[in-house]
Amino acid sequence: MQCKLCRREAKQGDVLCRYHSEAKKALKDSYARWNEAYSGISWEEYLNRVKTAEGTGQWVKDVITFEEGVTVN
């Protein structure tokens, strides 16, 4: 199956390729850090800020666009 965000092959049991999956993992892992930095930040606001922050990787931005509204497990 093709990745939902690019033409690469999706990882087995996933809808994203290895790179977009890696970006998604980094995005989820960073939430705790941001939450602490702002003494509480909603997931939606977090995505919004990461998307516009300087230095955010392109694959992370792709994931945000695709997964906006996703909640942290």
């Binding site: 970006a23 930095a37 990787g57 992370v60």
Partner: peptide, 12 residues
């Protein structure tokens, strides 16, 4: 490039 494209910056 992979590091850059999967990078999530942290605020300070």
């Amino acid at each position: 490039e992979v590091e850059i494209r999967t990078f999530v910056p942290s605020p300070y």
